[in-house]
Nucleic acid binder design. Structure first.
Length: 296
DNA sequence: GGTAGACCTGGACGC
DNA sequence: GCGTCCAGGTCTACC
């Protein structure tokens, strides 16, 4: 067994990242609340499938997995650093958040990071699977996708990695739809897989691109199945917070926060966070909503 | 540039 | 039981 300890830019809270959004509930992630252990079935670039066990450690995170070669160790360190956004700096956001009682908690809790999948491909697919459906269905669709098309973990083949673009591209929209119950999203997922697998679309390159956010957003919106909400969600994952992922949940919490629970539209959500500029997404995401404090 | 209508799926709800 | 509605929206056609 190998144990790696990876340091994070401070302040850092392992649990704040894990609980930053629902991603932790999507396969091949799993979180054990009792032991506060995050597991993830990772497929390395070599094709080797490993079970990563992640735990909080002083100054960062501890990773336990099978015996590794030096190159694999390096790949896992880089992957985990991306997944937990270990290098991200939120000091400018915290400076603004200190002036807002509804965000007073973020610095002490080291909030700001959002949990990411190893590849942007996986996060785009998962985001498409969150659209126009219930969260329970998103979890089911993702689990089905992993179960049907993921590479198995040696020694425990019931546990599988997230499918590669190549594997999904080799399938058909019909097989995807019938096997995973993703419904009308099947052609979107398949087309994305084909474009990525063929090399036409280099999604992973977008991680490091220094493009202005509107240009990055255009690239994301060019993906079938990715609209305004999905693009904003993916921009958050890419560390850009200029756009709000306005969904039915946003309409609900903003309505209860400032409009007495009355029906509102996207414009009201945008207007509520306009003043946060480049930190819009963060302010929205980590806001201490009144909705959480009332009887529901 | 803005907006109806259709869209897989499967729980929740009303009858 | 059965029909309708709708959910962490997006696309297309049409204006």
């Amino acid at each position: 067994m190998t144990t790696l300890t990876i340091s994070a830019r401070q302040p850092f809270s392992f649990l704040s990242v894990v609980n930053s959004h629902g991603w932790v509930q999507l396969a091949p992630f799993n979180f054990d609340k009792g032991t506060e252990t995050l597991t993830y079935i990772l497929r390395l670039s070599s094709g080797r499938v490993l079970d990563l066990i992640l735990l909080a450690a002083p100054g960062g995170v501890r990773v336990e997995t099978d015996d590794l070669g030096p190159a694999e160790e390096d790949e896992i360190s880089r992957t985990v650093a991306w997944m937990l956004a270990l290098d991200q700096d939120f000091s400018a956001f915290y400076a603004e958040a200190r002036k807002e009682p509804k965000l007073a908690h973020v610095e002490a809790k080291a909030q700001g990071r959002v949990l990411r999948s190893p590849t942007l491909f996986e996060d785009v697919v998962k985001t498409i699977l969150t659209t126009n459906t219930l969260w329970a269905a998103t979890k089911r669709m993702t689990a089905n996708l992993v179960e049907q098309f993921g590479d198995p973990l040696p020694g425990d083949p019931d546990r599988k990695a997230f499918p590669t673009p190549e594997r999904l591209a080799a399938s058909t929209p019909e097989a995807l739809k019938n096997g995973t119950r993703v419904g009308y999203r099947a052609p979107y997922v398949h087309e994305l897989a084909v474009r990525v697998a063929s090399g036409e679309l280099d999604l992973e390159a977008l991680k490091g691109f220094d493009l202005p956010t509107p240009e990055l957003r255009k690239r994301l919106l060019a993906i079938k199945g990715v609209g305004a909400y999905a693009a904003a969600n993916l921009l958050m994952i890419l560390g850009r917070y200029d756009f709000l992922p306005v969904d039915s949940w946003a309409l609900k919490v903003v309505s209860h926060e400032w409009h007495d629970g009355q029906p509102i539209g996207k414009a009201e959500v945008e207007s509520a966070f306009e003043r946060w500029g480049a930190f819009k997404g963060l302010a929205y995401w980590f806001w201490d909503w009144a909705y959480f404090h009332q009887e529901k």
